[in-house]
Design a protein around this nucleic acid. Structure first.
Length: 469
RNA sequence: CGGAGCGUAGCUCAGCCUGGUAGAGCGCCAGCUUUGGGAGCUGGAUGUCGGAGGUUCGAAUCCUCUCGCUCCGACCA
């Protein structure tokens, strides 16, 4: 069997917009790995610096290591999860009509002086001087840059509508970074920016992102509830935060229980009027701690859900704030200058890794939703060196891989307990346990991570079951 | 940025008060024994005791400065 260790994931993958079958590299074949060759430094004990469960588990499961306060190295396992999340975000952005670009991480301060934010932004912005003493900065957000791209390249209303997005690293010099990647200083974010000719079109762009977000979070395996957020002077009702519900969330949230069961929109035509979908979701009460209304909640009675949540997305319309300040006007249909209306739409990609763990874990470790799991299936060889076990595992490994399923094969010469513990800790969704007793009867065990039950079945039956998904 | 605390082996921590030349458990390496939920025994490797300066015959320990990290608060994708 050809062992293809090609998944040395590169950061460039995060920037690409192509739909490769392998989420971790440019190869067309699926990713799989023998654990004996995979760089997975797991920890039995919890490092003292980690306080919340997702941070603890990310360190213990070997996803990340801290480099400096609020700045992390992503190890192979964490990188795979991050890339899986980014890929789902990317697919849904593309489906909604947004186009991927890459803007600089280091920006010129000049643009920020134009918009007025160079002075307004404060010490959260990391300011840098280059060798010529020019004011540079590590981008905390990209409204200025994208507006500059727009004004110097879009000429006419015919270029609209336009929605440009990137999945890129940002830096905000938080006073107090904490909670691991949930509130780091450097973080991976999807940020999209829409340009439209008038309010109605702009609202449609907003609605497109709203729907794309509902679908994105559903695919990521989390419940994210849209909640009305502060919108500033121009936004009207066009500002929403998307909050993942998790018991350990940082802030309290209140919502109608109907929102919890509402399925994400299917087969969306993004050109059609999306307003009914938005109205359907926003008609039910949902509010964060700061904005909640006890009078409304009293009327909801048993329909009220009190929970805790983590903000993972934020969309808002801000009209001509930047396009006007930066003189980004184009020719309108009547030949007169037209200042486009803009919106911006963020998803905290690296924060989502933490948020998903907060929402999905148990005492033994992480429980990944299948869509973001670093590997879909873990094959546990209980007795490495036993001819029958080795052969069965090799067979499973090859066939699962051939079927396009990412698989992690624990071929290490370790005790059973260590293998079970590690596989639970890193949260692989499906475990196939191959031991000498079972193999003698032609059987293996199939177990779903998080479920107590194990199913004994033949090797073929296990394969069929896993490849049928 | 206000308040508090911590830096000793890869991880968790003891030693510091009362100075005497570096420790434990886990992990790692080798061997044996084990083998279905983080095994047992034997042997081994590993530290500029965060850094700099000072006091002293002698500093992980006392003093000064400095860097880093964490927690609580205010603030945020």
């Amino acid at each position: 069997m050809g062992l293809r260790l090609h998944c040395a994931a590169g950061p460039l993958r995060l920037m690409s917009g192509q739909n490769w079958p392998c989420l971790s590299c440019s190869r067309k074949d699926p990713c799989f790995m023998r654990l004996s060759r995979f760089f997975l430094p797991t920890l039995k004990e919890t490092p003292t610096e980690a306080v919340i469960v997702s941070h603890r588990l990310m360190l213990r499961a070997g996803l990340v290591r801290q480099h400096a306060a609020g700045i992390y190295n992503w190890l192979p396992l964490g990188t795979r999860v991050l890339q899986n999340i980014a890929e789902i975000v990317r697919e849904e952005q593309n489906a909604a009509g947004a186009q991927e670009i890459i803007m600089p991480t280091v920006q010129s301060g000049e643009l920020w002086k134009e918009s007025g934010r160079y002075d307004d932004y404060g010490p959260e912005m990391l300011r840098i001087k280059d060798r010529h003493e020019r004011d540079m900065l590590y981008g905390p957000t990209h409204e200025e840059v994208v507006t500059d791209i727009f004004r110097s390249n879009a000429k006419s209303y015919r270029n609209l509508p336009l929605n440009l997005y990137q999945i890129h690293w940002k830096f905000r010099d938080e006073v107090r970074p904490r909670f691991g990647v949930m509130r780091g200083r450097e973080f991976l974010m999807k940020d999209a920016y829409s340009f439209d000719v008038d309010f109605e079109r702009s609202k449609h762009s907003y609605n497109q992102m709203f729907v794309a977000y509902l679908r994105t979070f559903a695919r990521l395996g989390v419940k994210a509830i849209p909640m009305r957020a502060d919108s500033g002077p121009i936004g009207g009702d066009m500002s929403h935060e998307f909050i993942v519900l998790a018991d350990t969330g940082e802030s309290a949230v209140f919502c109608h229980k109907g929102l919890l069961e509402k399925p994400a929109p299917q087969n969306v035509d993004y050109q059609a009027n999306l307003q009914p979908i938005i109205d359907d979701w926003t008609s039910l009460y949902a509010a964060t701690e700061e904005k909640h209304d006890t009078a409304i909640e009293a009327k909801l009675g048993a329909d009220l859900v009190k929970a805790r949540g983590i903000e993972v997305g934020h969309i808002f319309h801000f009209g001509t704030k930047y396009s006007a300040a930066m003189k980004a006007s184009i020719a309108g249909p009547d030949g007169q200058p037209l200042t486009p209306l803009m919106g911006s739409y963020g998803i905290g990609v690296s924060r989502l890794v933490g948020a998903i763990i907060e929402a999905s874990h148990d005492d033994a470790g992480i429980i990944w939703p299948e869509s973001v799991a670093p590997f879909r299936v873990g094959v546990i060889n209980l007795k490495t060196g036993d001819a029958a076990c080795d052969a069965a595992c090799a067979d499973l490994y090859a066939k699962l891989s051939a079927a396009g399923i990412s698989v992690l094969y624990d071929d290490r010469d370790e005790r059973a307990g260590v293998k079970f513990a590690d596989m639970d800790l890193i949260g692989v969704p499906w475990h196939v346990v191959v031991g000498p007793k079972g193999i003698a009867k032609g059987q293996v065990e199939l177990k779903r991570r998080g479920a107590a039950a194990r199913e004994e079945l033949s090797l073929e039956a296990a394969l069929n079951k896993l490849t049928a998904k």
